[in-house]
Amino acid sequence: MLRARLLARCWAVLAPDGVPPGRAAGRSAAGTAAAGGPPDDLRALVDEHGTAIYRYALSIVRDPATAEDIAQEALTKAWLALPSFRGESSLRSWLLRITHHAAMSMLRVRRAEAIDPDDIEGSSGADHVEGAVENRLALAQFQRALADLDELSRQIVVLREVEDLPYETIAAMLRVPLPTVKTRLLRARRQLTTALEGWR
């Protein structure tokens, strides 16, 4: 009995989709991958939402390496919890909410260790795209303006301008009143617009 259970557990680890032969798969056949690699469902999830999760995490922690750690943690949690996702909100906003919690936990640890994000900001995430941007100085100026925003405003502007989330969803996600979302967004847009002048 116990031996059978242990064998089943080992099979769950070794099988690509974690489902022993002869049993109904928890995920669809399309969700499996050959040779023990990541399941196709996981690849699809990351391909569709990985960048948005990373971008949002980066807007909070302002450090590319930390943002990637947060993205990894958020995706791992989301992948495990995906079967219980009830579709009450969009998948994107559900994932961003998980990312928000992961980033906040990370920030709490970081603040406890008294590390200022400005100290680790040197390696910007935009290093990878700077070459494709016509005016690097303008990008740097914009990044400074973004960094100068308070943490809440930065999150709001990314969730609204990049992720297109409704005001109400943002307010619920960040647990702030609706007017806060609107006014912070207004001011953030204004400050960022000034920084955008370099590109005009």
Binding site: G50, L58, H128
Partner: peptide, 13 residues
Amino acid sequence: ALEAALAAPSDLN
């Protein structure tokens, strides 16, 4: 501009 400022590495996914 936000997407450029918060760009992800190409091999991130």
